[in-house]
Nucleic acid binder design. Structure first.
Lengths: 186, 186
DNA sequence: GATATAAAATACCGCACGGTATCAAAATGA
DNA sequence: TCATTTTGATACCGTGCGGTATTTTATATC
């Protein structure tokens, strides 16, 4: 049965297209697993997609959290985020988390709850990151840390979503650089 | 039969939830019309949704084009766009066009073609608008007009999408003001 | 080797979808 | 007024979905 392999296959399928467009049947076929086996392991489609989201979080999102918590300077960290969104090969087809978040209303309760948890963790991480630079020499805005955190996270999501829709990566980089420039003193 | 009423009902339904989540059956029921009648009028679900998009374009999107072509100053026009995205009551539940564009892969060929047409028209309108201010006293960036047009239109879409997801309108306004500030000389 | 047990493959269920055939009612034209 | 055509309501078709009951196969224990 190999649950790990199922998670990998499902993650790739959900990620490359869209969670709402990949049926349980398709995942069973792709993973070479019978439907009852899958249901014994994950309970429901909701359970599967929650497990897939957890898998994705520890395989991909952790890298973003690592960037935010890396202890580097404001400018360098923002540059790293821009790099990740516009150049990391894994983001070529977008971010599974953002795809799930964008289609929230189609998710089951388990997956929805995880999405909200991760969203809250991300917001906390962005806030902590920005707070450590407020009143520093690079910090520009008269914005609250909360507002800047939301702004940063949404611009990050926008850049990745644009990339998923086929936008030229260097154009994405250009636009994200522009949008984040307001956070820095020139 | 009253096709106009069907368009109104379908537009509202698609708009308030999501085109992919409203079935033809539901529209028939909401509009009090039989399914064969609807199919005789619009040919297919794709035909219906294209007609709905056209309806929406002439009822709502035309206002945005009017703002862009209003001949007002750069600052004033950007302010009007910010107002529209963050305060117009009609955008409370998002923009039907952006919802369709975000779910492109689920659209039929007719509707998809219209989405692309409208996207191209919008890009042209943004470009023409910005071009008329390049080298003016308010124009800030070293950006190309093309890149700035894309940036502006995506920030506009982002703001409306955030509003559709329940974000506080004044927070949306704050973030959109921030993102568009890079287009202006301070 | 016979038997209890766990796993997997198959077949199935109810449902909602997009789309259509059928048939009655109403409107139109001569 | 009668024949023709257009409309509408109902019922239906095939398909794919999420989820499960059943039957087969393999595995392990005595």
């Amino acid at each position: 049965m190999n649950a790990e392999n199922v998670l990998d296959v499902a993650m790739t399928a959900y990620w490359h297209s869209d969670p709402a467009d990949v049926s349980v049947n398709a995942i069973c076929q792709l993973a070479g697993v019978s439907k009852p086996s899958l249901y014994r392991e994950f309970g429901s489609e909701d359970g599967l997609s929650r497990a897939v989201l957890d898998h994705y979080a520890q395989r991909v999102l952790s890298d973003v959290f690592a960037i935010l918590q890396g202890g580097n300077g404001l400018q360098d960290t923002l540059d790293a985020l821009i790099d990740f969104a516009s150049s990391d090969l894994r983001m070529e087809t977008g971010c599974l988390f953002y795809k799930m978040r964008a289609g929230k209303h189609r998710l089951g309760p388990l997956t929805l709850a995880r999405v909200d948890e991760i969203d809250a963790m991300a917001h906390a991480a962005y806030s902590a990151f920005l707070r450590s630079f407020r009143d520093g020499e690079d910090w520009a805005p008269g914005l609250s840390v909360e507002a800047a955190a939301k702004y940063l996270s949404e611009q990050f999501a926008l850049a990745i979503t644009q990339r998923a829709s086929g936008e030229n990566p260097s154009r994405v980089r250009e636009m994200m650089t522009l949008s984040l420039s307001v956070l820095l003193r020139t």
